[in-house]
Structure formats: C-alpha cells, structure tokens
C-alpha cells in the first residue's frame, strides 16, 4: 500500500480536511499542466474534480488499494480527461502538444493501469446515472428509499402500496426499466 492511500480513504469517507490537503498537494500541478495546454484555471478545476470523482468511483471497490503515488495517478486521469475535451473541441494541434506532454515527469507503471480502471469505472457509473435519471419519479424514489435502509414494510406504507409483494413487483419493474435504459444508452 502506498502512503498516499490515506487520500483514497478520505474520499471514501468524504473527509473534507484531508481532501483539502489533497488539493494543497496536487492542485497547483494540475492547474499548471492545463494552463500549458491551452486551458484555463476553470478548465483545470473541472478536470481535477472529475479526476477525483473517478478516484471516488474506483474506491467503491473496498479491495482497492493504492499502489502508486497519487500525484502520478491523478495526472494520468486529468490529462486524459483534458485531452478528450480538446479532441471534442476539434483542436488537433493542441491535442498533439498535450499528448507529447502527457506523461513527462511521471514514471509509475501502476498509475496507468489504475487510471484506466478509474476512467472505465467513472464512465460506467455515468452510464448508470444517465439511465437512472430517465426513470419515473416513483421508480427513482422507490429505489433510493430502499437503498437508504427503509424496510420494505415501511416503504410500502410510505408509498401507500397494498403490500410488500406489490412493492417488490414495482421495484423489480423499475430495475428492469433501468436495465433497459442502460442498454439503450
């Protein structure tokens, strides 16, 4: 386990003081890199936040243990996010320059693998989230409340459903709809 794993734990717990330390250590480097690659401070803030959210998703796996310096991993993630954005804007020359600078100064072999996993996990979660948002209000409410720890009997009462069996039927239908929307996207 790398000593920087404490930042992963902080993201898992949403521990604001330690997350602030993380910004203190790594934000300036991210800002400088994005500014050098045709971005603004706001762009840097956005891709840095996206990188942290991607790490948060990676940390959802309780077995995930950070094996490389966090700075190297973060750099891999935010630089890829920024290059993707440049590509979307069709700024080919800027993309080429950014690609050249992408991994300079970073020599952590585990970081590439973890960055791939983080970005893949973030994309998967974005797909689940987009499908979830397209569900009906009732489905969203029902699934959230069940996940929040309400017992099925209490939830059936709260939603004024006849029985727990009705609740499960509704829930199963919502899950099937969510699944269908997920595959549509």
């Amino acid at each position: 386990m790398h000593p920087d794993h404490r930042y992963i734990e902080a993201l898992r717990r949403n521990d604001a003081p330690v997350i602030r330390q993380l910004y203190e250590r790594f934000a300036a480097q991210a800002r400088l890199w994005v500014l050098r690659n045709n971005g603004t401070a706001d762009d840097a803030r956005d891709v840095f936040q996206e990188a942290l959210m991607a790490l948060f998703e990676l940390a959802a796996d309780p077995d995930f243990v950070l094996q490389c310096p966090l700075g190297a991993l973060l750099h891999r993630i935010y630089s890829r996010r920024w290059i993707d954005r440049l590509r979307q804007k069709g700024r080919d020359e800027a993309v080429r320059k950014a690609e050249e600078r992408r991994y300079t100064g970073e020599a952590a072999p585990d970081a590439a693998e973890a960055a791939d996993a983080a970005l893949e996990q973030a994309a998967e979660n974005a797909r689940l989230a987009a499908a979830f948002e397209r569900l009906s209000d009732l489905c969203r409410q029902l699934l959230r409340l069940l996940s929040d720890g309400l017992t099925p009997a209490e939830l059936a009462r709260e939603l004024q459903l006849n029985s727990v069996e009705t609740l499960y039927r509704r829930k199963n239908a919502c899950i099937q709809r969510w699944r269908a929307l997920y595959f549509e996207s």
Partner: peptide, 21 residues
C-alpha cells in the same frame, strides 16, 4: 457520491482561481 461532489465543488475554487500559484 453527491456529498463528495458537493464538497469538491466547494473546495475547488479555493485552489483554481486565475491567480493561484
């Protein structure tokens, strides 16, 4: 996830102003 995103959105501007660093 929502709480973390909110936290990051609050902390981020302190470190990414145009004049930072």
């Amino acid at each position: 996830r929502q709480a973390v995103a909110k936290n990051l959105a609050e902390i981020g501007p302190d470190y990414f102003t145009a004049n930072a660093a």
